[in-house]
Structure formats: C-alpha cells, structure tokens
Amino acid sequence: MNNSENNGSQVIVVTSGKGGVGKTTTVANVSCALARMGYKVAVMDLDIGLKKLDLILGLENRVIYDIVQVIEGECTLKQALVKDKRFNHLYMLPAAQTRNKDDITPEQVKALCDEMRKDFHFIFIDCPAGIEQGFRNAISAADKAIVVTNPEVSAVRDADRIIGMLESAQFKDIKLIINRIRMDMVKSGNMLSIEDLLEHLCIELLGVVPEDKNVVVSTNKGEPIILNEKSAAAIAFNNIARRIAGEKVEIPDFSENSSFWSRIKTLFSR
C-alpha cells in the first residue's frame, strides 16, 4: 500500500463497507469531472460479478473485454479499456460479470495499476461492498482512499470498520465523503449532521453531497450528474474533483435558510 506516486499519478480507491451508499456514483461523477478539467482519468470496476460502473457511465454497450480477461492474458489492457463517449480523457476498465472476486489477486491488481500509471493522472478503483477478497484486491494498489458514507447509523458503523482496516493496511491518506445528506432533516433533528459524522469517524472531510433526485434521473439515462448544471449533487461532485486535483474549495453551508418555513423553524429551534 502507499506506493510512491510514480510520475505524479495517483491511484485512489473508493470504498464504504456498506453497499448502496453511492460509491459507484461517486467514482463515475468525480472521474468525469476530473476528465472534464483536462486530467487523464481511468476508472477500474473491481466489483467482479456485480458490475455497475459501465451502467452508471452509460457505457454498457461498448464493453468488449473485462479486467479478468486482461489479467488472464486473453486481451491487452488497451483492448479492454473503454473510452468514454463524452470525455476524451476518460477510460473505464470493466469488471467481469460471470466471474467472482477470488479470480484475481491483490498482486495482479497492483501490477495492472502500475502499468496504467504511465498513461493516467488519476486511476480510481471502484471497490465492492464488504471486507473480503474484493476489498483486499481493491486497496492493494491504492495510494489514497476515499470512504463514502451516508448520514445513517449502519453506514457510519461500516465506514468506521473500513477506516480501521485501511489504517491497519498503513493508509495515511483517508478522506471522507458524506453522500445523500438532507439538511432539512438535520435541522429538524432527524438526521446525523456533518459534524456528528466527523466526530464519530475522526477523519478529514473531502466533500458533502446533498440528496438530489436528479441523480436518479441521470442514472436512468446513463449520464453523469455533473452534466446537469442546476443539480446540487453536480456542484458537490465538481467541488470534490477540484479538491482531489489540489484546489482549495470551501465546503458550502447547505442550510436552506431561504424558504419561509425553514426561517420559521429556525426561529423555534433557537
């Protein structure tokens, strides 16, 4: 773990422990945003047997080969990489659907990432849910880790476990993304807040993505949400991408003080 960052390229694993918190959506949108900024980006789907990234990126019809075929020498890496249809600098390495997580090893993933480092600025690894072989494969090659969680007890508990495992694996750079937060519910005392999560998990915050129904619409169409300029989630994913690229971008206050009702509520909650 923590490989020296060869020629400035970064391998970043996106993980969560719990499934369904938005790992794949995060990987897809952050990588699209970085590619739009001009970086060369590769995304690697390591959820072998349960692939999703191709579908989220709308590239499912372009997949010919997969990562297991590359590792087993049935095709070259270049043949397997799927070029994105919108962003010239974005490539996806698909997972295999009919194989399982034990068909590849951490060493093989690491060798593959090392081969990719020379061509890409950022390589994102979409980690499967769980803490078994798939997780070990996904973290083996990474320099940094991003933990995605939701403001919900079971997701926070799993995130904490994952952070502990990343620390045991000597990861020094572990950052948190809080996905699907609803500030109206935080305000009314019915959802864990950003501060609550940071207090429990004690790691650095990389970004906060508000709940946004536009994400479902984009996913239905196989389009990244970042293309929808009006979406709050799009703004958040763009900001996260900029922070990963090293820019200083403040985390905005998502409170909705503008509406009449929320002002009344604030009055009573003082």
């Binding site: 007890v153 508990r157 009314s188 005392g189 019915n190 959802m191 864990l192 807040s193």
Partner: peptide, 12 residues
C-alpha cells in the same frame, strides 16, 4: 428535535 438524531449519535 431531540429525538432521532441524538438517539443515533448515542447508539453510534
């Protein structure tokens, strides 16, 4: 207000 968020924090 003091309901579910506080309870969640306490349990966590």
């Amino acid at each position: 207000n003091s309901s579910s968020r506080d309870k969640a924090n306490e349990r966590l």
